[in-house]
Computed example of a mutant assay.
Amino acid sequence: MIPSHKFIALELKDQLKTLFLEGSFIVSIRYYGYKINLYLLNNFYVEVFYNHKHDHIEKVQPLDKNHTRMKFYSDQIKLPGDLMC
């Protein structure tokens, strides 16, 4: 199990490999020009930003629980209460 600080330091291709092998897919949302897949990896959530126009994963980042995207997630699924604060 990889801790979040080591996961963030990985190159994009290694982050994706780790997510697909060790993470659990939670939900997808549409957000502006992206399809964002939310994963649970160990004890933290990770977002994968896929750009449809360019058919390319642009970035992988830990979930920012204070971002307005949280509403899109909470409309579809129930995340643990401490994430919704």
Score class of each variant (00 low, 15 high):
residue 26 I to V: 10
residue 47 E to H: 08
residue 85 C to E: 11
residue 47 E to V: 02
residue 48 V to M: 06
residue 76 Q to A: 15
residue 42 N to Y: 07
residue 45 Y to Q: 06
residue 46 V to D: 02
residue 76 Q to L: 15
residue 13 K to M: 09
residue 29 I to Y: 05
residue 76 Q to R: 15
residue 81 G to L: 15
residue 16 L to H: 04
residue 15 Q to P: 04
residue 54 H to N: 12
residue 14 D to K: 12
residue 20 F to G: 00
residue 80 P to Q: 12
residue 7 F to H: 01
residue 46 V to C: 08
residue 28 S to R: 07
residue 24 S to A: 08
residue 44 F to P: 00
residue 65 K to G: 00
residue 34 Y to V: 03
residue 11 E to M: 10
residue 23 G to L: 07
residue 9 A to N: 13
residue 70 M to V: 06
residue 33 G to L: 12
residue 17 K to C: 00
residue 28 S to G: 01
residue 23 G to I: 06
residue 1 M to Y: 09
residue 82 D to C: 08
residue 63 L to H: 10
residue 51 N to M: 10
residue 32 Y to C: 01
residue 61 Q to K: 15
residue 67 H to R: 11
residue 50 Y to W: 13
residue 48 V to Y: 09
residue 53 K to L: 12
residue 30 R to L: 08
residue 74 S to I: 11
residue 12 L to D: 05
residue 19 L to S: 02
residue 11 E to Q: 10
residue 59 K to F: 14
residue 48 V to D: 00
residue 9 A to L: 12
residue 5 H to P: 00
residue 46 V to G: 08
residue 32 Y to K: 13
residue 62 P to C: 08
residue 18 T to V: 14
residue 14 D to F: 12
residue 37 N to F: 04
residue 83 L to W: 13
residue 69 R to K: 12
residue 27 V to E: 12
residue 58 E to R: 09
residue 29 I to K: 04
residue 67 H to S: 15
residue 28 S to N: 10
residue 81 G to P: 07
residue 5 H to L: 07
residue 17 K to A: 01
residue 37 N to C: 00
residue 2 I to W: 06
residue 19 L to I: 05
residue 62 P to Y: 11
residue 52 H to G: 11
residue 24 S to L: 09
residue 30 R to C: 05
residue 69 R to E: 10
residue 77 I to D: 08
residue 23 G to A: 03
residue 59 K to A: 12
residue 80 P to I: 14
residue 75 D to S: 11
residue 32 Y to R: 05
residue 76 Q to I: 13
residue 36 I to C: 06
residue 28 S to A: 08
residue 55 D to C: 10
residue 41 L to E: 02
residue 34 Y to I: 06
residue 16 L to M: 02
residue 84 M to T: 13
residue 33 G to C: 09
residue 38 L to N: 01
residue 74 S to V: 13
residue 32 Y to I: 08
residue 83 L to R: 09
residue 29 I to D: 03
residue 9 A to C: 09
residue 1 M to D: 08
residue 15 Q to D: 04
residue 46 V to P: 05
residue 22 E to L: 02
residue 49 F to Q: 05
residue 25 F to Q: 01
residue 78 K to P: 03
residue 50 Y to H: 10
residue 6 K to P: 03
residue 69 R to L: 11
residue 5 H to G: 02
residue 31 Y to A: 01
residue 69 R to N: 10
residue 53 K to D: 13
residue 74 S to E: 14
residue 73 Y to F: 15
residue 75 D to T: 12
residue 3 P to T: 06
residue 74 S to M: 15
residue 19 L to Y: 02
residue 41 L to M: 06
residue 7 F to I: 09
residue 78 K to W: 15
residue 38 L to E: 04
residue 26 I to K: 03
residue 61 Q to R: 15
residue 53 K to H: 13
residue 77 I to K: 11
residue 67 H to Q: 11
residue 39 Y to Q: 03
residue 81 G to W: 13
residue 12 L to Y: 07
residue 29 I to W: 05
residue 17 K to R: 08
residue 71 K to W: 07
residue 30 R to F: 14
residue 40 L to K: 09
residue 9 A to R: 14
residue 20 F to D: 02
residue 20 F to N: 04
residue 39 Y to L: 01
residue 8 I to R: 13
residue 34 Y to A: 05
residue 82 D to F: 15
residue 73 Y to M: 07
residue 2 I to K: 03
residue 76 Q to G: 07
residue 22 E to Y: 00
residue 85 C to V: 05
residue 52 H to Y: 14
residue 66 N to Y: 03
residue 46 V to W: 12
residue 4 S to Y: 01
